[in-house]
């Protein structure tokens, strides 16, 4: 991902994958919204990065897993970054905290100077 157009492409890809496993419309919307926040974060904070979207299976259930990775500056204070309303830039501070609330699983791996990787999963019901 290098531009705003890529964020739109990520949203469309996540939407089509979510439809393929028949996530409910509300769950699709939550997942796509979370992906949009994280894809934007990757661009804004990481400069550029990648998104990987895949269908996963566990215990007879299907889910969509999306991983957003960048090699940017990393996050020094993760607790602070996950606080709703706290922002490092001019945003609303809802990117990370909001995305976390919208999905079933949320894992973040970050190291100052090395970059950040955020993985989210939404399971079918």
């Amino acid at each position: 991902m290098t531009s705003g157009d890529d964020v739109v492409r990520v949203r469309q890809l996540v939407r089509s994958k979510a439809q393929s496993i028949r996530l409910s419309l509300v769950d699709q919307t939550k997942l796509v919204t979370a992906a949009s926040e994280l894809a934007r974060n990757t661009l804004v904070h990481g400069g550029s990065g990648s998104a990987r979207i895949e269908v996963v299976q566990r215990g007879g259930r299907s889910g969509i897993r999306a991983v957003f990775s960048d090699t940017g500056p990393g996050i020094a204070d993760l607790d602070l970054a996950l606080t709703p309303g706290w922002t490092s830039g001019g945003g609303l501070g809802l990117g990370l905290s909001g995305a976390k609330r919208l999905v079933d699983e949320f894992d973040i791996d970050t190291e100052v100077g090395r970059g950040t990787s955020v993985a989210i999963t939404k399971w079918s019901r």
Partner: peptide
Amino acid sequence: MRPAVAITLVELGL
């Protein structure tokens, strides 16, 4: 606004 969008907005905290 679509219902699914409204539900998501509220959960997002917007």
